[in-house]
């Protein structure tokens, strides 16, 4: 009937919308993040940390701030001070927020609110200046 044109138009709009993920990124290609891991061993396994670091930090915050606990005992028995900037981000480990944290967070569109309170070591004004 006379509505075929309208139906066809609706179909085109629908297909364009559904395939948005396929054409929406054509002009802006960001490569997957290439994160440089420091030497040595993290406090838990790589796979565990990749998937669950946010929960560990969340628990650490509650333990430290609310319960006053200062030591985390890892699954292999080693003890670590509960501190984002002094344990995780100490010199020689993940000391560069831009090169470590932000790479994946930006890629995966994650916006953690750690930095509402914390200051990353690499973003502190160098000593000696004002």
């Amino acid at each position: 009937m006379s509505d075929k044109g309208k139906i066809f138009l609706g179909l085109i709009v629908f297909i364009v919308a559904v395939t948005y993920p396929m054409w929406g990124g054509v002009f802006a290609k960001t490569p997957a993040p290439d994160v440089q891991l420091p030497d040595g061993k993290c406090i838990e396994s790589r796979d565990y940390m990749v998937a669950n670091h946010m929960n560990m930090l969340d628990e650490w915050r509650d333990k430290f701030v609310r319960e006053g606990e200062e030591i985390y005992i890892a699954s292999d028995g080693t003890e670590h001070a509960i501190s984002l900037t002094k344990t995780c981000m100490k010199s020689g480990c993940h000391d560069n927020k831009t090169e470590f944290c932000d790479k994946c967070h930006t890629y995966a569109d994650v916006d953690p609110y750690c930095w509402d309170c914390h200051v990353a070591p690499d973003q502190v004004a160098p000593k000696g200046g004002n």
Binding site: Y20, P21, G24, G25, A28, M54, N55, Y107, D109, D111
Partner: peptide
């Protein structure tokens, strides 16, 4: 889910995530 399909997440997806997570409970 568009954040997983577009290398650079469009602004409206980020806005939706903000609104949807307004309770700011838990991590993630």
């Amino acid at each position: 889910h568009l954040r997983l399909f577009l290398a650079e997440t469009p602004f409206f997806v980020t806005a939706i995530e903000r609104a949807d997570g307004f309770m700011q409970v838990g991590v993630p």
